[in-house]
Design a protein around this nucleic acid. Structure first.
Lengths: 249, 249
DNA sequence: CGAATCCTTGAATTATCTCAATGCCCGTGG
DNA sequence: CCACGGGCATTGAGATAATTCAAGGATTCG
């Protein structure tokens, strides 16, 4: 039972919150923030812990404050597909839905800012800024999901790996607000198997393609999880995207 | 130029609208409906016509009133992936975005109920019911996209075909409000190539797998596009889903 | 040190794709 | 009316990318 293993985290001011400007609360004014402050509580999870099982009753919604979580679907015979990669500021849960549709797992140590579902839903009705921001975030997620569908349906294994690295580099850069230079280092928060679940591949294929990209000089490895990208443009070419996704000027 | 080929359609009362209870306007009260009625105009397209090209400026949003449209992404070398299948009541376009992200194509003759983007956005701010319904619809689409990701990433060609038939049967049934019986007929609005673009396959593989399902008695063909499903449960098994998606009692 | 994880690499197998030929259906024009 | 062409679908044979099965290497942690 996840609830028994998790640690409680002490209260923190919304004003200092690292995700204040990107999360569901991004648009809130001071009054609204005070109201949210009443509702919120933190929960934290260790790397590897399951936050929610698909099919479980879920009576909260939450924002990822720090760490990374995944959304996965599993078929009866065990085939798994990741359907969401949740980075800080991303939202978990669906207003109006009691039952979780996906497994949510903490890939790294994870802190979430939670709201009980009912009060949050009431707040959505009363304060339009939360609902507005949630719509915007959901539309962004839908765009990301569609990008991901192109990857899953049509890209080669090599392109899939390159695309994943590009995606992580991009989100990483936008989070740390630094302009991605042409040389940059990406901390890969996923095991090979998790990457495989993301990309619709086997872990062996992931490993082979990473080796191939390394052999061809597209990336360098610093340990297993740290990846250096000497030439971002080159990586983006390998990803097969028609645009650079606005990563370069 | 699509705009030159399309026909204008005469005005129609929202009260009589076939998608009144499912579209973005579903939650609107009488006053709000009057306001929307002012804004709306119909456009229709012939089967095969392109509604919007990805990258084009798009200064309207719309609901599909009748017919079917697709959202597709294309890579430089021509690989195509369908990322959305728009049936009546589905919404096209994104408030707050000028530029279309996907190609939108009419697969059958198509009628859309359009709103110029700016007035629609103003309306969203003023009347929460439109924004609320749009959030709900977007969340549903996101769920559908995630289901689709599992299909693209992990299902076999045979399972993909069975899943597609199940999806169309389900949406068809919910639109016509009839309980799917164990024997039912599905009108397939897609060519083999379009099915392939949906499923991340080639058209040859689609054709082969349809033949295989026919050979094995899972489906029967009535012409090329009409498909009879003698035993829905059997089809759902073939689709590899762990649940029946609520189609059977 | 030994066990547990995670990762890499190889060899054989297989699902799907590619290329190519043929068939079916329907509308058009001779 | 029939022949023809175009669009769509089917089927086969060979090629190929990715998977499966299997072994072994690296790293961490008690």
């Amino acid at each position: 039972m996840a609830a028994l293993q998790e640690k409680q985290v002490q209260h923190q001011e919304c004003g200092d919150c690292p995700i204040r400007h990107r999360a569901v609360c991004a648009r809130c004014d001071t009054d609204e923030l005070v109201a949210l402050e009443q509702l919120k509580y933190y929960r934290s999870f260790q790397a590897g812990q399951t936050v929610i099982w698909s099919g479980d009753r879920m009576d909260f919604v939450a924002s990822v404050v720090s760490g990374i979580a995944t959304l996965t679907q599993t078929m009866e015979d065990g085939r798994r597909q990741m359907v969401g990669l949740l980075l800080p500021s991303d939202f978990v849960g669906r207003p109006g839905r009691m039952i979780a549709s996906y497994d949510v797992t903490a890939t790294t140590d994870l802190v979430m800012c939670c709201f009980r579902r009912k009060p949050f839903e009431d707040m959505m009705v009363k304060t339009p800024h939360v609902a507005q921001r949630l719509l915007e975030m959901t539309l962004d997620e839908l765009d990301a999901a569609r990008e991901w569908m192109l990857l899953l349906g049509r890209k080669t294994a090599r392109e899939k790996i390159a695309s994943l690295l590009a995606i992580i580099a991009r989100r990483d850069a936008s989070l740390h607000l630094r302009q991605p230079s042409s040389q940059l280092t990406v901390d890969l928060p996923l095991t090979r198997e998790e990457m495989a679940d993301y990309l619709g591949l086997t872990l062996e294929t992931v490993s082979r393609q990473i080796s191939a990209l390394k052999r061809d000089g597209v990336i360098r490895l610093e340990g297993k999880r740290q990846i250096v990208i000497p030439d971002l443009r080159r990586l983006l070419e390998e990803a097969g995207d028609d645009s650079d996704g606005g990563m370069l000027a």
